[in-house]
Amino acid sequence: MPSKKSQAREAQPNPPIEQAEGPPAPDPVPPVQLLYCSVCSFPPEYCEFGSSLTRCKEWLKDKHSSLFDKYYSDDALSTKLGTLSMEAQAKLEKDTAKKEAKAEAKADAALKKKLASQVTIKRIERNKRKHVTSIHGLEAFGVDLKKAAKQFSSKFATGSSVTKNLQGQDEIIVQGDVSDEILEMIETEAGVLKGIPADNVEIVEEKKKKGGD
């Protein structure tokens, strides 16, 4: 077992829970300051079991070189073998490499999918001269729909909400015909609308069917 005595580590990314409150009676035991890998979110000693070891290593070397030496220097590597046999270790390494490749392929596929996904801005006719605009597909680009809706409503001073369409997918409905303005906002990456390639945005129009309800 490793000793649980912790060295004073660097500040962790997420701040510790507030310490100020509470009666001044015997002091509360301070929390262990612990660093998490910013790539895979594990404590750095567990990076080797994650799916992004190479990137984790780079990050650690770059940001916290002392820790890098601690975990990845030759001594550390030989001691950490511990009771595990050489073959088992080799197998583990092979597995890790495989896992890493897999995760990379997955990330690639996800990125491709993201790049291929479309944002549709649809102008829907309410009656002859009134329209609403529905924006569909923003969530694929990691946009918070609620926040985007809020942004639209404050920008255009009209109602804007997140609703489910007939297929049960979320979309933003903005009152009024604002499709061109929204396209412009996407192009200029206003507010929360970041990272959407303008080529992926299409504007369509939906006319009310004649004699319909």
Partner: peptide
């Protein structure tokens, strides 16, 4: 638990078990 590691009793697993645990 990472911040206050002493609050639970400890058990340890060997290195070979880590990846199964994860």
């Amino acid at each position: 638990l990472h911040k206050y590691p002493y609050i639970l009793p400890k058990v340890g697993v060997d290195r070979g078990a880590i990846r199964f645990l994860l």
